[in-house]
């Protein structure tokens, strides 16, 4: 596997949430808005990269029987670091993530990568794997978060939970201006599907997105199957033609011999 493939595999081919269904708890719990999804994703990138690096560094020293507890301690250390950093620099995000910030420890994705990849590969590959897989996880969370926030409020906000780069919360995207071309004083947030910001909406939104993924996958499998069938038919036809030609040539030869 090349370095580029190693980095990119987490986004679609081996996406932790959409393909492997790992880390479903945060995928449902913290994706009510775009910002909390992005924040959670970036914290996971940090923890995953850090734990992958340390695990691949110490893989020679740890006896096989106690490796899982040892990995858990390494991950928990990074989670504690992240918890304190978030508390210091983004208290709004800390409050919004609540119990799911310490729960990064039991995110199956992180222990899974430590066990399946970092304990068998060198530091550089493990780092790339950690960043790639973490960004794939972030990508999935952001897709769900944007889907839910847009359906619930009709726009995407920035600056509420991650107060960086702006002084006051702003809308990155909203439909208000399109509708205001036709009617005045229309606020699309009043007409949002508020259920998508509540727990039931999380389940339904993730269900819809996963169904979309399965639909795409089934079509791809179908297409591949059809292509294979076509190829086989083509080969059969070619073989048949060759046989015919051979038979014809043999008949001609026989005639000439007579």
């Amino acid at each position: 596997m090349s370095k580029k493939e190693n980095f990119l595999k987490g986004f679609l081919k081996e996406n932790p949430i959409f393909v492997f269904l790992l880390g479903m708890c945060p995928a449902l719990a913290v994706t009510a808005t775009f910002e909390t999804s992005l924040g959670m994703g970036l914290l996971v990138v940090f923890v995953l990269t850090g734990s992958n690096i340390v695990v691949s560094l110490v893989k020679g020293f740890i006896p096989d029987q106690v490796r899982t507890p040892a990995y858990i301690v390494i991950i928990a250390t990074f989670v504690t670091v992240v918890k304190m950093l978030t508390f210091a620099y983004a208290i709004e995000l800390y409050d919004a993530l609540g119990v799911f910030l310490p729960l990064i420890v039991v995110n199956c994705l992180i222990l899974g990568r430590a066990e399946a990849f970092a304990s068998k590969n060198n530091v550089l590959d493990s780092t790339i794997d950690g960043i790639g897989m973490g960004l794939g996880f972030t990508f999935a969370l952001v897709v769900i978060g944007v889907f839910r926030e847009f359906l619930a409020t009709g726009g995407i906000q920035w600056g509420v939970y991650l107060p960086f780069f702006v002084d006051a919360p702003i809308h990155l995207f909203t439909l208000d201006w399109i509708i205001n071309l036709f009617t005045d004083g229309f606020v699309i947030a009043d007409y949002g599907l508020a259920v998508f910001s509540l727990p039931p909406g999380a389940f339904i939104a993730l269900g819809i997105i996963l169904a979309g993924f399965q639909f795409k996958k089934s079509r791809q499998i179908k297409r591949e199957l059809e292509e294979k069938k076509k190829l086989i038919a083509e080969r059969k036809r070619q073989a048949l033609e060759k046989k015919k030609e051979k038979a014809l040539a043999a008949a001609k030869l026989a005639k000439a011999g007579e």
Partner: peptide
């Protein structure tokens, strides 16, 4: 339907249960 089989339909069912508990 084929694309909803397995986890997606389970999640939607869970969503409806969650709506009831809300």
């Amino acid at each position: 339907p084929a694309s909803w089989k397995g986890v997606p339909i389970s999640l939607v069912v869970a969503g409806i249960m969650s709506l009831a508990f809300l």
